[in-house]
């Protein structure tokens, strides 16, 4: 009984390798011999084969044309609109957020905002123009720092593996200038060896 269980366990462990034709001839013969005499393992093999077959029959999907069109527009904005500069990237990013909103919605929102500003100005006589802006203090949260560290590690891995670009450029792209300005060195130091820094 114990012997039969051991044989079943062994056969069940080898089902996938058997389906993929990766068992050496001796093991393959032993597997087929056991499955030929064990209804439970035969049933399991049949189920595994049917599932593997159905899995392979799942169709690849075609990328919709509009996705390629939209990506082409974004890529064009990147290439033509000083895409390698921060302002170009910012424009592209802002554009990508605005695109999903229909124009009437944007127009209505703008009208509401302008109307609200005018009403406030009229009733409270607040000096809207000319108020000096206070520089915003930026201190990244622990989560932002953790994300930045992960991104730096990923960027470093990519740059080392796929290209000879300076690490700093890749890092900036991944974690953004704000975090980089504030905590750049403290993030880079433990992850990126000195020789890889710009």
């Amino acid at each position: 009984m114990r012997n039969s269980n051991n044989q079943c366990d062994q056969a069940l462990e080898r089902i996938e390798a058997y389906i993929d034709g990766e068992l050496p001839p001796e093991d393959r013969n032993a597997f087929e011999l056991h499955v030929g005499s064990c209804a439970r393992c035969r049933e399991e093999l049949s189920y595994a084969e049917a599932l593997a077959h159905e899995l392979r029959a799942l169709p690849p999907h075609r990328c919709p044309d509009h996705v390629i069109e939209e990506a082409a527009s974004r890529a064009e904005a990147y290439a033509g609109g000083a895409g390698s500069t921060a302002s170009g990237r910012l424009r592209a990013r802002i554009g990508s957020y605005l695109r999903p909103w229909p124009k009437p919605v944007l127009a209505s929102a703008l009208i509401v905002i302008v109307a609200a500003v005018l009403i406030v100005q009229k009733h409270e006589r607040l000096p809207i123009v000319g108020v000096p802006e206070q520089p915003a203090e930026f201190s990244p949260s622990g989560k932002e720092l953790q994300t930045a560290r992960t991104d730096v590690a990923l960027a470093f891995a990519y740059v080392r593996k796929y290209s000879a670009r300076p690490i700093e450029n890749a890092v900036r792209e991944h974690i953004g200038d704000r975090v980089m300005r504030t905590v750049g060195e403290s993030i880079l130091r433990p992850i990126v060896p000195f020789s890889f820094r710009k």
């Binding site: 996705v67 390629i68 990506a71 974004r74 890529a75 990147y78 895409g83 796929y162």
Partner: peptide, 24 residues
Amino acid sequence: EAEDVTQEVLVRLWQHVEEIDPGK
């Protein structure tokens, strides 16, 4: 979500294609 991911990857591919070894 698959469309968003595809668009994002295609744009990144376009941005980096010249830096990547064609074999990779």
